[in-house]
Nucleic acid binder design. Structure first.
Length: 456
RNA sequence: GUGGAUGUAGCUCAGUUGGUUAGAGCACCGGAUUGUGGUUCCGGGGGUCGUGGGUUCAAAUCCCAUCUUCCACCCCA
């Protein structure tokens, strides 16, 4: 009986220990800073009610939600008309009422409304869990991936808008991702722009078009705007906007344009606060750039928006977020403003991998391996093993007294940092021959010295 | 979802116009080396050529379908 080659679904991955150690390093670093910024942990289920998710991510987003088939004889209850018509959209609601979460923000909004009497506002939460998207996989783009989110809800203070810049700065610096840019913009500015251009109803179309500036260039954007039948005044104003490279000039131009747009003025006020706040935040590595073309697809953002890109590796954004004023409203709770960011741990992994910038500690598997020389020696090592483990060292004793070469190979394969050899002589002298597997140096030491050395 | 590539051993890839038993390097296992790994030498295991059909005397090679991975669009972490 020939067994089928086992495999996993498209866009999903297995992770080997060597990969998991590095992934955990990233998650641990992000989690550490989330905690330092006083965010509290929560978790939500992998699946949500389909109705919770649909309509929150725009038409495109809805298509990418993984739906879960109802249990039991689901076809009996299916919408027969829709089935006969071959209308999947209509059929879906009758055969699926659950779906895998698409991101962590919308489930969080649901969570806030549901537990509003159990939490204290302003509520800062962090959440590190996988999400699923029925997207077509590509490099750096998976159907199952982790998001690391931090959000504050219940406060519209712009201090938090600034604080998130600091958080990004701390995390990126700590991950030694030193060359990156935080692009910032404000949806109110984009709304003001659409207003003064007289295309308020085509705001999304307009922002999607100018968002492509980096990719298709000015001519490409103009072509796209023309393709969407934008009036010529819009085209000329957009050209004018693009000609200004300087941040100050852009802001001054917008001041002029927004003289009659209250939303535009508000946006400018906010972005100035943010830029000024960033200057005073003593950022370690972050380069902040006001980018009028930054739009971000998710349509629940209403204020500040962020996107972080690496300047060293081309991989798309590695972190993104923004402020949203109405997200809890659809679940029945008004007046709760929120702001959050999401770190793309998977992409950060790819970037660190490409730059070979994981620290040695994130490559280490087992810290200490005891070589097995035989029954007597092994028995002696077992008590030493207990001792070093209690001292907080990740340690192992090789199970059999195999040939030294084999045991050393095992050590290499598991990226063991230190090897301890205790044979007849060492037992007699109550010492341990400790070998550093990177330098190759070795010396006879006491158990106390060993613990100090291995713990570094 | 639209368009385009790809798939041979665990990994990276050879494989001539269809023609015997499909190869290499690395990795793995064993030995040289009974207390010292990442070097060297010798030997060994491992592939129904992504999967399923079809054309042919004959298919890794040609055709179709399907899956995977990748690229562009869309969208995004």
């Amino acid at each position: 009986m020939a067994a089928n080659k086992p495999s996993i679904p498209k866009g999903t991955r297995d992770f080997l220990p060597s990969e998991m150690i590095r992934r955990d390093f990233i998650f641990d670093t992000i989690r550490k800073h989330f905690k330092r910024f006083a965010f509290m942990p929560i978790e939500t289920p992998s699946m949500e009610k389909l109705s919770t998710l649909t309509g929150k991510y725009g038409e495109e987003g809805d298509r990418l939600i993984f739906k879960i088939l109802n249990s039991g004889d689901y076809l009996r209850k299916a919408n027969k008309d829709a089935l006969a018509e071959g209308n999947s959209t209509k059929l879906t609601s009758s055969i699926s009422e659950k779906a895998l979460r698409y991101d962590l923000t919308v489930p969080f909004a649901r969570f806030v409304v549901q537990h509003q009497n159990e939490i204290q506002f302003p509520f800062k939460r962090y959440q590190i869990q996988p999400v699923w998207r029925a997207d077509r996989p590509q490099h750096g783009r998976y159907r199952e991936f982790y998001q690391c989110d931090a959000d504050v809800v219940g406060s519209d203070s712009l201090r938090y808008d600034v604080e998130l810049l600091s958080l990004i700065d701390e995390v990126m610096s700590d991950l030694s991702l030193v060359d990156y840019t935080i692009k910032i913009n404000n949806r109110k500015i984009l709304a003001g722009l659409a207003e003064v251009m007289g295309i308020a109803d085509q705001l999304t179309d307009y922002t999607v078009a100018i968002d492509k500036l980096d990719k298709v260039g000015e001519d490409g954007v103009i072509k796209e705007l023309e393709g969407r039948n934008m009036p010529s005044s819009v085209i000329s104003k957009t050209k004018k906007l693009f000609q200004l490279g300087d941040e100050e000039q852009t802001l001054a131009l917008l001041d002029d344009w927004f003289s009659d747009s209250s939303i535009g003025k508000k946006g400018l006020e906010e972005i100035r606060y943010l830029l000024n706040g960033a200057k005073n935040a003593d950022l370690r590595t972050a380069k902040i750039k006001f980018d009028i073309t930054l739009a971000r697809g998710l349509n629940y953002y209403t204020g500040s928006i962020y996107e972080v890109i690496s300047n060293e590796v081309e991989i798309g954004s590695i972190c993104g977020g923004g402020r949203y004023d109405d997200l809890t409203e659809v679940f029945g709770l008004k007046g709760i403003s929120g702001i959050g960011i999401s770190f793309g741990a998977e992409r950060i992994y790819d970037v660190l991998m490409k730059l070979d910038r994981f620290p040695e500690s994130a490559k280490e598997g087992i810290q200490l391996l005891f070589i097995n020389f035989g029954n007597e020696e092994a028995k002696h090592c077992e008590s030493l093993l207990r001792e070093v483990r209690r001292a907080g060292i990740n340690a192992e004793l090789y199970p059999e007294s195999s040939k030294m070469q084999k045991q050393m190979k095992f050590a290499n394969a598991n990226t063991v940092s230190w090897v301890a050899m205790v044979g007849e002589n060492e037992m007699k002298n109550k010492t341990i021959r400790l070998k550093n597997m990177i330098s190759g140096e070795q010396e006879d030491v006491s158990i106390e010295t060993l613990i100090i050395k291995v713990k570094g």
